[in-house]
C-alpha cells in the first residue's frame, strides 16, 4: 500500500492538471457558450513550439533551452497568442451561430492545429527534457515526491488565487464576470464584447500553456495527442462543475483527479487498466443525480 501522503500528492497534482484544463474551457464557455475542443491541441502546440521543426525521431530542442524565467513567459505567450488568433480568425465568424455549430468549428480548428503539427514534426512521440532538475524527489511530510509534482500543485494554487483576484479586483475582471452572466446586458452598459472575449481566450490559452509546461516536464515527451487525454477529463470536469461555473470546474477537476488516483490504488491490479471506465461511471452517476452540474452557472441568458 502506497503511503497515504503519496496518494494525496498524486491526487492533488493530477487534479491540478484537470482543474487548469477545466478552467480554460469554462472561461470561454462562460463568455460565449463555446465548448472549445481545440483546447487540447493548443496544449500540444505549446509543447511543440519549444522544438525546432523536424520529422526526425530525435527532438531538436530550440526555445525549450531557454532558462526557465524566459521559457515560462515565452510558452504562456505562445498559448495566449494562438488562442487569441483562433478567436480572431475562426470563432469571431461564428459569434451568432448556434452552440453546436461553434463546437464543430472548434473540432475543425483542433484538427487543423493537429495536422499542422503532424506535418512539421511527424506523429512519432519525441523525447524531450524540459526543465530538468524538477524530477528530483523531495521529502515532504514523510513522502518522497518529485519536485515537479510539488511545483504543479503550488503553481495551480497560485493561478487560482491570481485568477480570483483578477476577476474580483480588476475592472476587466468585473466586465468578464458581467459578460459571462449576461453578455447582451453587459454590452448595453458599454462593455466591449470583442475585448472581453479576446481576454477570455488569452487567459484560456495561457492556462493551456501552463498545462503544456507541466505535462512536457512530467512525461518527458512531446506528443501530438498529449493534450487530448487531459482535455477529455477537463471537459468532463467542466460539465460536472456546471458548464461555465469557474469554481465548479476547479472543484470537479480536483475531484476527478482524486477519484482517478484513489481508484488506481484501491482497484485490484487486474482492474486497474479499466480505471477510466470506473471514473466515467462515477461521472454518469453525478450527472444522473445533478444534471445541472455540481455548481450550476447562474447566467443562462442568451449571449452576444
Amino acid at each position: 500500500m502506497a503511503p497515504i501522503m503519496q496518494v494525496v500528492f498524486d491526487a492533488l497534482s493530477l487534479g491540478s492538471l484537470y482543474a487548469l484544463g477545466a478552467l480554460g474551457i469554462a472561461l470561454i464557455f462562460g463568455v460565449m457558450r463555446l465548448v472549445n475542443f481545440a483546447h487540447g491541441d493548443v496544449i500540444a502546440f505549446c509543447v511543440f513550439a519549444l522544438l525546432w521543426p523536424s520529422v526526425d525521431a530525435v527532438a531538436i530542442i530550440f526555445a525549450g533551452n531557454l532558462p526557465w524565467f524566459l521559457l515560462i513567459p515565452f510558452t504562456l505567450a505562445v498559448g495566449a497568442g494562438l488562442s487569441v488568433l483562433s478567436e480572431v480568425v475562426v470563432f469571431r465568424r461564428f459569434r451568432r451561430a448556434n452552440p453546436a455549430t461553434m463546437m464543430i468549428a472548434s473540432f475543425a480548428l483542433g484538427f487543423v492545429i493537429r495536422y499542422f503539427l503532424l506535418m512539421l514534426f511527424s506523429s512519432r512521440p519525441k523525447s524531450i527534457s524540459l526543465l530538468p532538475g524538477l524530477s528530483q524527489p523531495v521529502e515532504l511530510l514523510g513522502a518522497r515526491i518529485p519536485l515537479l509534482q510539488l511545483i504543479t500543485i503550488l503553481v495551480t494554487i497560485a493561478v487560482l488565487i491570481g485568477l480570483t483576484a483578477f476577476l474580483r479586483r480588476t475592472r476587466f475582471g468585473l466586465e468578464m464576470r458581467a459578460a459571462a452572466e449576461n453578455f447582451t446586458m453587459a454590452r448595453m452598459l458599454g462593455v466591449r464584447a470583442n475585448r472581453v472575449i479576446m481576454g477570455a481566450f488569452a487567459l484560456s490559452g495561457a492556462l493551456a500553456a501552463a498545462i503544456a509546461l507541466i505535462l512536457g516536464s512530467q512525461t518527458g515527451t512531446a506528443n501530438i495527442m498529449m493534450g487530448a487525454s487531459v482535455m477529455l477529463m477537463a471537459f468532463i470536469a467542466t460539465v460536472i462543475g456546471g458548464m461555465g461555473s469557474l469554481a465548479g470546474a476547479v472543484i470537479a477537476g480536483f475531484a476527478l483527479g482524486a477519484i482517478a488516483t484513489v481508484m488506481q490504488v484501491i482497484l485490484p491490479p487486474d482492474a486497474r487498466a479499466f480505471r477510466d471506465a470506473f471514473v466515467y461511471g462515477a461521472v454518469i452517476l453525478v450527472l444522473i443525480f445533478r444534471p445541472q452540474g455540481l455548481l450550476a452557472a447562474r447566467g443562462t441568458k442568451e449571449r452576444v
Binding site: L174, R177, A178, E181, N182, T184, M185, A186, R298, G299, K301
Partner: peptide, 11 residues
C-alpha cells in the same frame, strides 16, 4: 437583467 451573482455595487 441584473447580474445576479454580482453584488449591487458591482452591478
Amino acid at each position: 437583467d441584473v447580474f445576479g451573482s454580482l453584488t449591487i455595487e458591482e452591478n
